[in-house]
């Protein structure tokens, strides 16, 4: 397969085999939507083909492609207005009253010892999918990619205090979603 080499350094015919799974996982951690993640990876390969003549070999083929994918993801966030929008800042008001005490209907109830594990995981998965885009992004980056909080802030262009607000909110939502759907 000598014809697979463009510019002597890129091997586009190998891209899918070498990078597609990794890149898809990377995109899924950031957009949490299969179709969007697939489109982003496909777009990455196609734009890379178009600008193959700009590849100078300063970085590895993988890093060069990954940089293109990252830009696509940032563009996607920008289009969705997700970079700046933290959603309603008063969202925690659903859980706490004006004095900051648990609202009666939102106060954590005791959980029984987990019996059916698969059921718990199934509901947790559904609850994660119900989080908004940024909420899913912080959860994915933290638990899927095991990134440190500073790295997540940098990647999502959010301040540390916003990070904690997002994490706190995501945990509140997950907890109450689990309680509502699992304890029935």
């Amino acid at each position: 397969m000598s014809e697979t080499t463009v510019n002597g350094t890129l091997s586009p015919r190998e891209w899918v085999n070498r990078y597609a799974d990794d890149f898809f996982r990377f995109a899924m951690a950031r957009v949490s939507d299969r179709i969007i993640a697939q489109d982003l990876v496909q777009d990455t390969f196609l734009s890379a083909l178009q600008s193959a003549d700009q590849f100078r070999g300063h970085s590895s083929e993988r890093n060069w492609l990954l940089a293109i994918l990252k830009n696509k993801i940032i563009d996607h966030y920008r289009k969705e207005g997700k970079v700046v929008s933290l959603g309603r800042l008063e969202e925690e008001d659903a859980f706490f009253d004006e004095k900051g005490h648990w609202r009666k209907e939102a106060a954590p109830q005791p959980w029984p010892a987990p019996g059916e594990q698969n059921e718990f995981y199934r509901i947790l998965r559904a609850c994660i999918r119900k989080l908004n885009g940024l909420g899913q992004a912080v959860i994915n980056l933290k638990y899927l990619e095991e990134k440190k909080s500073e790295e997540i802030c940098k990647e999502l262009s959010i301040s540390p205090s916003n990070y904690w607000v997002l994490m706190h909110r995501a945990r509140l939502h997950l907890r109450s979603c689990l309680e509502k759907n699992w304890l029935k």
Binding site: F24, M28, W111, P114, Y121, R125, Y143, L174
Partner: peptide, 20 residues
């Protein structure tokens, strides 16, 4: 419960088949 959720989330996402 937050600890339980954190551990379960990690388990779930690390072995998530929808990520293939």
């Amino acid at each position: 419960q937050g600890r339980i959720i954190a551990a379960a989330t990690e388990q779930l996402l690390q072995h998530d088949e929808s990520l293939t």
